[in-house]
Design a binder for these strands. Structure first.
Lengths: 351, 351
DNA sequence: GGGAGATGTCGAAGCGCTTCGACGCCGGAA
DNA sequence: TTCCGGCGTCGAAGCGCTTCGACATCTCCC
């Protein structure tokens, strides 16, 4: 392995000079810089990450904690993760992959050992057990998702409340008076996953405001589960003329079942989805949907973090003020009209 | 930050003693060990990762390179990644997330800087451009997937050739004489992705052996694309009585389309899928399928790596023989019979 | 009873890098 | 001409850990 000292010798300068060429923290003459660069190139020098981290107390690594369960929103998760990795690299950072399994202690571990300088958390729950750790030990952190109490934390998320409201508005605007919501698996609500509950709140509040009936049913993925839920919905509320789906594994089963039971989309029932664009666009009926901008979320999370991290003293300085600006950044949801929503059948015809 | 020296002082021993308590590389008396452990606990000591890596030349990090495009087999990829992370942690390693974007140079970077000790590559192509780097500089590596020439490399994969053969055998055994294969997106084949081509070879070879007709069509995801492909298939080969699907985004559309065109599964046509279990089991018709054991693949990959890594000299020793045992480990595919396959209609009835 | 071999602990020398203070040099101001 | 301040470079002191050789101590056996 080539070391900095060897580069220095090769270029006929001191070790510190090579270091300054690399970091740009002190002025170096053009001639020297060129020589050093040439030697680096020639010897194929690569700075030792550990040594660097030790000397500078900056590892240039951020940890990304993904949920262990892959029972939910898989494409979204992966998209976010990839966007995080890509964006981080663009800023000279690497990404350490943590699973939810280890829980809060993983945060302490990677952060306390100086392995990672900061963390990004996905799949945040309303009263997430990792939050106390963040508030206390306070490694710089950004949450993708919004907990119940985001005070003092930096969060990025889609404004799911607004997304829910948007769906109801769209359907109510078309004339629907009875809307059914097919939601995530019951477990997701049981865990108090932020986005699911907030969407629901947005749906409910706006439905109440507009005097529209709203029925919410959690739903496991898969054809059979959707069939059961659907049957119960029509049983309880025969007047339902529109669906909001927030569960990517329920989308196709729902469409198939509606078709099979002789309900045309959008003529007989309308469907609006909250899901990533590709899923909505590629569905058997292209779906009117509110997009979940996974990549954008990942990108923003990293950028918040990096912004907070730079301008940071090498060592430890005035401790915690190095964290990213606390605050919640909610992306405005956008509803794209496709083929799956339209006005309901005229009342008279229906009943 | 608490350092080892502080722990030593607190416990009334020397720094090296603390180190040996931690590493177990030299015998330490029970009494001393207890005292040191107590001090560690009490002070909340965490070894500094960088310092450790520097002194020992082992970072205890393995890099995982995931494909940048998330256009394919997303759940499989995420499952593998999560399994890798989990298994690695169980062995005391952390995982660095790399995307395919940086390409071969990323391998050099993380490996040359001592950031990662080893790498796991996913989405390996038959003539992957990253392989030369591995063969040359030779950081310990395990591929999840099988390139055209695996010599000198360590690989783990499902035996997709056997998987293909298995599908054909199953269908031929039921009496089918004309099989259509709905494959991955054309781009996947264009990239010469190993698993796709190997499955195809297995399908073709066994079909030839058994004298069964086989038609292969790549297929983009989404309803419309599947519709087009399906129409062309029936157009070209009206006698097709069975499908093999290797494209998770085509599964539901295919079932929906068959249903809509009045072909019952499995009475009129049989369907066999090559996909993760949950997808097959949750489909609108539970599918006879060959499972892709994503978690198992991730787990094995890590275990191969770790096995190679331990027994490794601290510094660099006799260089490259530290790599994991080269060799290919192919998991035997298992076909699970569900509801989607059965004997074809009697010839006479058909035509 | 004395040397051989464990056993348990310590001190010191790095690992490769960053960073701080020092220093020589040159140009401009006095 | 002298003095001052930048500029460009160097040397040295760590960063926190591992590891090697050395040194006591203790045990056991002839």
């Amino acid at each position: 392995m080539v070391t900095l000292v060897e580069v220095a010798r090769h270029a006929g300068v001191s070790a510190s000079t090579v270091s300054y060429v690399l970091s740009g923290k002190r002025p170096i003459s053009d001639l020297t810089r060129r020589r050093v660069r040439a030697s680096i190139e020639q010897l194929g020098y690569q700075p030792h990450a550990g040594a660097r981290a030790l000397a500078s107390s900056r590892s240039r690594i951020i940890a990304l904690m993904v949920p262990l369960r892959t029972d939910m929103y898989v494409p979204v998760m992966l998209d976010i993760a990839v966007a995080v990795a890509t964006t981080a690299r663009a800023h000279g950072y690497d990404v350490l992959l943590l699973t939810g399994e280890e829980g809060p202690s993983a945060l302490r571990r990677v952060t306390g050992s100086g392995l990672a300088e900061a963390v990004i958390l996905m799949d945040v729950q309303l009263d997430d057990e990792r939050l106390p750790v963040l508030r206390a030990a306070g490694p710089p952190a950004v949450l993708v998702g919004l907990p119940a109490d985001p005070s003092g934390l930096s969060c990025v998320d889609l404004d799911f409340t607004a997304a829910g409201a948007l769906c109801v508005e769209h359907l109510a605007g078309l004339g629907h008076r009875e809307i059914a919501v097919i939601g995530e698996a019951p477990g997701v609500y049981a865990r108090h996953t932020g986005f699911a509950e907030r969407t629901l709140r947005g749906l409910r509040d706006r439905a109440t405001e507009l005097g529209v009936g709203l029925l919410h049913r959690p739903c496991e993925g898969g054809h059979d589960a959707v069939a059961g839920v659907l049957a119960r919905i029509f049983d309880e509320r025969p007047g339902v003329s529109a669906f909001v789906v927030q569960n990517e594994t329920a989308v196709e089963p729902l469409l198939a079942l509606l078709r099979r039971t002789g309900r045309a989309v959008p003529e007989d029932v309308s469907v609006v989805a909250v899901c990533p664009e590709p899923i909505a666009a590629q569905a058997s009926v292209p779906l009117t949907s509110v997009a979940i901008p996974a990549q954008e979320l990942g990108r923003r999370a990293v950028e918040r973090l990096i912004t907070g991290l730079s301008g940071r003293p090498g060592a430890d300085g005035p401790a915690d003020d190095a964290a990213p600006t606390p605050g919640v950044e909610l992306l405005t949801p956008v509803l794209t009209s496709r083929d799956s929503s339209g006005p309901p059948l005229a009342r008279g015809v229906m009943s």
